[in-house]
Computed example of a mutant assay.
Amino acid sequence: MELSTKQTIMTIVYYGGSVEFFAAIMTLLILATVIGLWRREIMWGYVRVLEGFANTVGRFFAWAGLLMVLQQIMIVFLQRIFRVSEISFGFFAKDLSWWSEELKLYNAMIVALCATYTFVQGGHVRVDLIYSGVSHRTKRVIDMLGSLLFMMPVAVLTWMYAWYFLWRHLITPKPSATDTLDKLMLKARAVRWNVETIGFSPNGFNAYFLFKVLLLAYCGLIFLQAVAFFYRSFLEFVEGPESEGKYLDKDTLGEGEEAFEGTH
Score class of each variant (00 low, 15 high):
161 Y>D: 00
49 V>D: 02
60 F>T: 03
42 I>G: 10
217 A>H: 01
218 Y>L: 07
159 W>S: 08
170 L>P: 10
198 I>D: 02
209 F>P: 03
119 F>S: 08
238 V>D: 02
117 Y>M: 12
110 I>H: 14
81 I>M: 13
17 G>N: 06
70 L>E: 10
156 V>N: 02
78 L>R: 03
116 T>Y: 12
228 A>S: 15
122 G>F: 13
260 F>T: 07
37 L>S: 02
147 S>W: 07
126 R>M: 10
109 M>P: 00
57 V>K: 06
75 I>L: 15
139 K>S: 04
188 A>Y: 08
66 L>D: 03
26 M>V: 12
73 I>L: 15
229 F>H: 07
233 S>L: 11
161 Y>I: 05
81 I>F: 12
60 F>K: 01
177 A>W: 12
2 E>Q: 14
47 V>P: 12
16 G>C: 02
230 F>C: 00
97 S>E: 13
18 S>Y: 09
90 G>P: 05
212 K>T: 01
105 L>Y: 11
64 A>G: 13
205 F>Q: 01
161 Y>N: 01
238 V>M: 06
36 G>Q: 04
5 T>V: 14
258 E>Y: 13
10 M>D: 07
69 V>Y: 08
220 G>A: 04
138 T>P: 01
109 M>T: 04
34 V>K: 07
240 G>N: 10
160 M>K: 15
21 F>Y: 11
187 K>S: 13
182 D>F: 01
143 D>P: 02
200 F>L: 15
72 Q>I: 06
90 G>N: 01
217 A>I: 08
79 Q>F: 09
148 L>K: 09
126 R>G: 03
97 S>G: 04
260 F>H: 15
87 I>T: 11
23 A>L: 14
129 L>N: 11
206 N>K: 14
68 M>C: 12
217 A>S: 04
211 F>K: 09
259 A>K: 14
110 I>Q: 13
147 S>L: 13
123 G>E: 06
263 T>I: 15
30 I>R: 02
12 I>Q: 11
111 V>K: 05
194 N>K: 08
164 Y>R: 03
26 M>C: 10
4 S>D: 10
152 M>Y: 11
257 E>I: 00
124 H>K: 13
202 P>D: 15
246 K>Q: 14
189 R>M: 00
142 I>P: 02
119 F>D: 06
207 A>H: 15
90 G>C: 03
84 V>A: 13
87 I>Y: 07
87 I>Q: 06
263 T>H: 15
120 V>L: 09
253 L>T: 04
13 V>G: 05
171 I>F: 11
223 F>H: 10
26 M>Q: 09
222 I>T: 15
140 R>F: 12
183 K>G: 02
6 K>D: 00
162 A>M: 07
254 G>L: 07
236 E>C: 01
46 Y>T: 06
101 E>H: 12
162 A>I: 00
98 W>Q: 01
163 W>T: 04
133 G>C: 01
210 L>Y: 14
193 W>C: 03
201 S>M: 05
120 V>Q: 05
178 T>G: 09
260 F>G: 15
261 E>D: 03
212 K>V: 05
130 I>Q: 07
207 A>W: 15
83 R>N: 09
32 A>R: 03
156 V>F: 13
208 Y>F: 06
104 K>Q: 08
160 M>T: 09
161 Y>F: 08
220 G>Y: 00
2 E>G: 05
213 V>E: 07
186 L>G: 14
146 G>E: 00
225 Q>Y: 14
162 A>Q: 12
226 A>Y: 06
